[in-house]
């Protein structure tokens, strides 16, 4: 547990920007019961963001970061895309290296941290877009599941390559016209949550980010299971409001539609995962 690294050096205190001082004073550290209910009071681990106004990916970031049970010892690995612009504004150790290699990098980090710090809990969480997770990075994603890497993978599914201007992705729905699919997508949306189950994930959830509490539950379950059992996968519908022609205040409405249809809440767990989740609930941690 390394909360001390967020303590401000007294000799430099007067030069520190207020948001860094607030991190020390008002962020929730050392409290696994932290969650989205702290959002109005606590200092968030995300300082502003660079996504479009109203982008549901920004909701997802805020809820996920508020729900990490062990932020002071959590490493976040990301990939290229709209989300990558947010990472430098996260107060934790984050990595961006290439587009699509996030689960490979996370595997290396997790294994070495286990080797270097056998008596500490260090959580490794991957956060990446649908293009990164399912198209260019599918090999690295699935192989990390096959290898039973103890990491949590979170996919921001906006059903498009948003950052490069709206191209069809493997997670675009059949028939939808996007750039590079000018006649409409010719094949079905990849059921990534099912691939995650088949590839050995112990906890898998598919949902939108319309309900902050539900995101918190999923994140905590996924991280606790990854710590003890093996890979876990969270599939989040975070619609690209820009590319589907929605206004800034319409992201939530779009996700609520998703809750009823294509992204209705779906949860899967193996017996080992169930055991961990039950225990953590008894301990009051979920």
């Amino acid at each position: 547990m390394s909360f001390n690294i967020y303590k401000v050096n007294e000799e430099l205190r007067e030069f520190m920007p207020p948001e860094i001082l607030e991190l020390e004073e008002k962020a929730t550290w050392g409290n696994p019961k932290r969650g989205v209910m702290d959002l109005p009071y606590a200092k968030e681990l995300l300082e502003e963001h660079s996504l479009c106004a109203g982008c549901p990916e920004s909701d997802a970031f805020r809820y996920i970061l508020a729900s990490l049970p062990n932020p002071e010892d959590t490493i976040i690995v990301n990939s290229t895309g709209c989300t990558s612009l947010v990472f430098p504004q996260i107060a934790l150790h984050t990595v961006h290296s290439l587009f699509g290699n996030q689960n490979a990098v996370a595997s290396g980090i997790k294994r070495v941290l286990e080797y270097r710090f056998p008596n500490k809990v260090k959580d490794v969480v991957v956060l990446a877009g649908d293009g990164a997770t399912v198209d260019i990075g599918l090999d690295c994603t699935l192989q990390s599941f096959f290898r039973q890497e103890k990491i949590t993978t979170i996919c921001y599914d906006n059903e498009v390559y948003a950052n490069t201007g709206g191209q069809e992705s493997g997670l675009t729905v059949k028939g939808h016209v996007f750039k590079m699919a000018p006649k409409g997508k010719q094949w079905d949306k990849v059921p990534m949550w099912q691939l995650a189950i088949d590839s050995g994930c112990h906890y898998v959830v598919r949902m939108t980010v319309s309900s902050p509490r539900r995101v918190e539950q999923a994140v905590k379950k996924a991280i606790y299971v990854a710590r003890e059992v093996g890979p876990t996968y969270i599939h989040l519908y975070t619609p690209c409001i820009l590319e589907i022609g929605r206004n800034s205040d319409e992201g939530l409405e779009e996700m609520k539609l998703g809750d009823k249809e294509r992204f209705s809440f779906f949860e899967y767990m193996t017996p080992q995962a169930e055991e961990v989740i039950k225990r953590k609930k008894e301990e009051g941690l979920i």
Binding site: I75, V77, V95, S97, L98, N101, A104, V105, A106, S107, G108, I109, K110, R111, V112, L113, Y115, R116, D139, C140, Q143, R147
Partner: peptide
């Protein structure tokens, strides 16, 4: 040697060793 495994491809391996190195190995 502390950590050793076979990666999925050379692209994966070179990213995996990058992760190992970033984590201080």
């Amino acid at each position: 040697v502390g950590v050793y495994f076979r990666g999925e491809s050379e692209f994966g391996v070179m990213s995996e060793v990058a992760g190992c190195s970033m984590a201080g190995a």
